[in-house]
Computed example of a mutant assay.
Amino acid sequence: MNNTSVTRPSFLQAGHGTTSAVLLVTPDMAREWLKHNTHNRKIRERAVADYSRDMAAGKWLMNGEAIKFSTKGALLDGQHRLHAVIAAGVSVLMLIVTGLDEGAQETMDAGRKRTTGDTFALRGETHFTVLASVLKRVWLWDQGDHRFTQSRVPTTAECAQLLAERPEIRRSVEIAVRVHAAFRYLPQSATGTAHHLFSRIDGAEAVWFFARLGDGAELPAGHPVLTLRNRVMTERADRRSVPDYRYMAYLIRAWNAVRDGRDLGRIIQAPDAPMPMPK
């Protein structure tokens, strides 16, 4: 291939072996190449949506992963990226490899996918797994997914952008880790997300709330934080499976009661009840 003159792979290059080039892949090129997508796995629409959002936002970086074609011209790998180029309506630089044995398709995408937490670890972030979890939930919350259904999840680039815009989330993660070390009955992802949301409303009150959540010090009977602690300890003792959104609801109900200055005898969140909003 010639990097400057080739506009699409030469699918049949007899005697030329495996070839590669970096090309600016346009939506029209992607449509043409997908005509050769005759033997591949089922399209995952969420992956296409995730990739296309990053491409449209200019956050898709060429990372060496190739669009791959066989010696017979069949598309072996890259269908999701090509569909994303079309969906985004932008042109993207990509590495193109042709002339591969068709049997090589069985070995593609067999490795463990790099997670958002892995990326933050490489960047030197502390508590990177918790940080990734909190960023995803804050992103979902801001998108209106208050029950964390994750029908649409943020990409690593979107999580990184959120952290750049709100670096204070790192502090929320630190608080979540600290609370969990003292009181191990709440998931750090829910605690960190709640800390960030509550701190937006009243930073000073959030400091007190999460300090008492961790140590339970001098809380009288009926105090919302004590009721919250008792609720989650009981559920853990009963080995109940509690989804993250319900932990969030418990935290918000306790927080709202503290803000209102009222006691809270019990915390209930029915499965079909709407998520309360922090105030």
Rank of each mutant, 00 (worst) to 15 (best):
T115N: 03
R114A: 13
E32Q: 11
M233A: 06
L93K: 10
G265R: 09
V22R: 06
V97G: 04
Y51N: 06
Q188H: 10
R262C: 15
V153F: 10
T191A: 15
S172V: 00
I175L: 14
A57F: 06
P154D: 05
V207Y: 04
I67F: 10
V153H: 10
T26V: 09
A14E: 12
H16K: 14
A66W: 00
R46N: 14
K279T: 09
T7L: 14
T107V: 15
M277F: 11
L122N: 11
E106I: 14
T115Y: 00
T126E: 14
G89P: 06
G261I: 02
R112I: 15
S172F: 01
T155I: 01
W255K: 04
R152A: 14
D142W: 06
T155V: 02
D238R: 15
L76Y: 01
N3Y: 15
G15M: 06
Q161Y: 08
G117D: 07
E65F: 10
T126V: 15
T227L: 05
V225I: 02
K59D: 13
H146V: 08
D272R: 09
F209H: 01
S133D: 11
I43Y: 08
A104C: 15
L197H: 04
G64V: 01
L213A: 07
Q150V: 05
D77I: 11
W33Q: 05
I201D: 03
R236K: 14
E168H: 00
G265E: 13
E106P: 09
N63G: 13
D145S: 08
T129C: 14
G265P: 09
T126W: 12
T71D: 09
N256S: 04
L135P: 01
M94T: 04
A190T: 05
L264I: 03
V130H: 07
W208M: 15
E218M: 13
V130C: 13
D260T: 05
L162P: 00
M275G: 02
T98E: 15
A132P: 02
P278N: 07
G58M: 03
R212V: 09
A56W: 00
D142I: 11
L34E: 03
D28Q: 09
G265W: 12
I267L: 08
A249F: 03
V97K: 02
W139T: 04
T38A: 15
L135E: 03
A88L: 03
A221C: 12
I201C: 06
A21D: 08
S5Q: 11
V242M: 07
Y51G: 03
L12E: 12
M277D: 08
R178H: 12
Q150T: 06
G103Y: 09
D77T: 09
R231F: 04
R41S: 05
T155L: 01
F69W: 00
F198H: 06
A181N: 08
A30Y: 01
G111N: 02
P220N: 10
H83W: 09
M55W: 07
P278Q: 07
L226D: 11
V134T: 05
L264A: 03
A254S: 09
R262W: 10
G78T: 04
P271R: 05
K113G: 14
R152T: 12
S133E: 11
L12F: 11
L82E: 01
H36E: 15
I169K: 00
L93S: 12
T149L: 14
R253N: 13
A211P: 09
G64D: 02
M55Y: 04
